[in-house]
Design a protein around this nucleic acid. Structure first.
Lengths: 259, 259
DNA sequence: CAGTGGTCTAGACCACTAC
DNA sequence: TAGTGGTCTAGACCACTGG
């Protein structure tokens, strides 16, 4: 049954066991590569093949420099409550909801806003139900947890909407939340279509989110509409396995009530 | 700005450009490793470092054997419509919904069922709102697209429920769907709490789903309840970037109507 | 400065698989 | 049997970073 693991796979398995069983804990350093060469009596490349597996699985991180080494990662999971906020009557904006969640984990949330004009791809224009590609406003929110980038949220507003609500062009955070701002101007969002996917980070994303090679991203695409029109497209790219998305469907009191 | 890419990174970038720009198309074979050694005048290990990046990004697959080689992957995305089915009044079962989706893409769906008794971990018992770990029935459904494993769906039913509805112990597919079966016995599910995460596949999952190393999985956890009790826990592990999950919140006619 | 990981070489032998 | 990727070795030099 077992397909005869190769040498580096057996070494990886042994180290993986030490990590998952807790012999080596998050934050602990692994032995140096040259120490592992001695311990297992193999070449350094074989050790690097083994540790590359652990890094690809998200268990371990390489830290360069004199006091560096390989460190067992400590992944805290931040949960996005997709069903909670963003309804016009919701008590909090989507951003507030995220900030609350991060603080509840004892971590420090930060956000960076920017705003610029872009030309929509035909793919994006189609998702916004526009007849053809055209200009749009892109509002970007980069979120940090303990100063490490955690997610990039890009929201595209079609030109007809920003003509109606020029406040959307503000390069600053809109305190009350864009959903409530739009509602106050008569644009009430009543429906969302979310699509969630997982894929490997592109090199650009790995740079932006400061991800190690071999880290996945969780991508949530949200198309929002009023009773008769599509008003925005939001693409949220989240770092690796440090984020989760939660959806409630129907009444969940028996589940959440016991918490 | 650019941090001086190393040799293997530059080679990877060049090959990546050929793939994403369409010079090399899905299904096409890359040159052999030894041909690439010649073309770039580097050692084979450097070529392997470069191609390992492409494999980790999910762009390329290695195929062993005489006529093997490195092949550009063609990823078709199957979408799970999480909001559609599973309501007792829904026209189709969750399985039917999936089968329809796969067929619509011109692919062939297959499913394998199995059923066995397991002991719940304390984590799972907590999710089922049981006071302590205990026995449960695990119904597993492995799904294949064109004979390649695509997802593993594990559903755990607590013992009190299988005592009430022994049909759940059937090792065969339940044609009408378990949700409708339970509804006929008076267990009407009215709420779901879904959590979606992305992470790297463990070696076991990579084996089950026949994934190459460095492929992410999309994990959907669904806890379902009736008006007053939690009745099941479903963990669905999906292969890499070949799957997506879709949620509808509120009225989405302006979005879906235009399709 | 000393030690870490990062990169690269030039070989070697193996398992697998279509021809 | 011939050619593919899979594994492994024993070196080498580099960039980076704390003491």
């Amino acid at each position: 049954m077992t397909p005869a693991l190769s040498l580096y796979q057996r070494i990886a398995a042994e180290m993986r066991r030490d990590i998952t069983s807790g012999v080596i804990k998050p934050g602990d350093k692994l032995p140096t590569e040259r120490q592992l060469v001695e311990r297992f009596s193999v070449s350094r490349d074989t050790i690097r093949d083994a540790t590359a597996m652990l890094i690809n699985e998200g268990l371990v991180e390489r830290v360069p420099g004199r006091t560096g080494g390989m460190v067992v990662r400590d992944r805290v999971v931040v949960t996005f409550h997709a069903s909670w906020a963003e309804s016009p009557g919701a008590p909090v904006s989507e951003a507030d909801s995220w900030i609350t969640e991060v603080r509840a984990l004892g971590l420090t949330p930060t956000q960076d806003f920017s705003c610029r004009m872009v030309t929509l791809s035909s793919e994006m224009a189609h998702q916004l139900r526009l007849t053809e590609p055209g200009p749009a406003v892109l509002r970007r929110c980069v979120r940090y947890v303990n100063d490490r980038p955690s997610s990039i949220q890009d929201t595209y507003y079609p030109k007809w909407l920003t003509d109606l609500v020029p406040d959307l062009l503000s390069p600053e955070d809109i305190k009350i939340g864009t959903t409530r701002l739009l509602a106050e101007r008569g644009i009430v969002q009543t429906g969302y279509l979310d699509t969630v996917r997982a894929r490997m980070a592109t090199p650009e994303e790995a740079g932006l989110l400061r991800l190690g090679a071999g880290t996945p991203v969780l991508v949530k695409t949200r198309v929002a509409c009023t009773a008769d029109r599509v008003v925005r497209l939001t693409v949220e790219t989240m770092a690796g396995d440090g984020n989760a998305i939660e959806y409630e469907i129907g009444g969940v009191e028996p589940i959440t009530g016991a918490r």
